[in-house]
Amino acid sequence: MSVRRSRCQNGFTYLSLIILVAIIGMATAATLKMGSVIQRSRAEQQLLDIGAAYSDALQSYADATPAGMPTQPPSLNELLRDPRFPGVRRHLRRIYVDPMTGGAEWGIIYLNGKVGVLAVYSLSDAKPVKIGNFPPRFAGLAGRQKISEWRFTAVSKSAATTQ
């Protein structure tokens, strides 16, 4: 009789061990998923910070434009060192790496095809974690379905305060 009871207890212990391993596996999977979401959220916040820098640089370039010249730079390189002035004039410190793709390549919207840079955007087609509750400066980004739809343009200081 004691042999039969021992087998029954061994089966119960084995079943308990399988359930425990399954629970640990599910908890690990949930932790990894949450870590991934947190990492993407941080990358999106970095993208917003970099987008603000590009937006400010485009506006700085436009504000410094002499009368009669186009207010958009021909490329992002002109934001690094403005060739319109004899001295060194910078609107942007460096071309940033896109935190969503990991590359230095950005999507650029040009005025009339290829004349001047109007907007900069990430080339990532990922769905954003953040879809609302943006700061007033980025209120137009709410509800976008892809990161590549987040466009960063020159915004004058007076327009930014009225939004």
Rank of each mutant, 00 (worst) to 15 (best):
A64V: 05
L80D: 10
V88G: 15
P74D: 07
P66F: 11
A67C: 14
V88Q: 15
A67T: 13
A67D: 15
P86L: 01
L76S: 05
E78W: 15
R89Y: 11
P73G: 00
R81A: 08
A62L: 07
N77F: 01
M69L: 07
G87F: 03
A64E: 11
V88K: 13
L76R: 05
A67Y: 14
A67W: 15
A64L: 05
Y61T: 06
Q72T: 13
S60Q: 02
S60P: 05
T71M: 15
L76H: 00
A64T: 10
T65W: 08
R84N: 01
P86W: 01
M69R: 13
N77M: 04
F85C: 05
T71W: 15
Y61G: 01
P73H: 00
R81L: 03
R84C: 00
D82V: 04
S75F: 04
L76T: 03
D63F: 08
N77D: 10
A64M: 06
R89P: 10
R89M: 04
T65R: 09
E78N: 15
P66G: 09
P86T: 06
L80I: 08
L76V: 05
Y61M: 02
P86I: 06
L76Y: 05
Q72F: 11
A62N: 06
T65M: 08
M69F: 11
Q72M: 13
P74A: 02
P86R: 00
G68R: 11
P83L: 03
D82L: 04
Q72W: 12
R81G: 03
F85W: 09
P83I: 05
S60V: 03
L79I: 09
A64D: 12
L79P: 14
M69Y: 15
V88P: 09
R81H: 12
R89I: 08
D63Y: 11
D63C: 07
A64P: 07
R84Y: 05
N77T: 09
T65H: 10
P74S: 06
M69T: 12
M69S: 09
A62P: 03
R84A: 03
A62D: 07
D63S: 07
Q72H: 13
R84H: 01
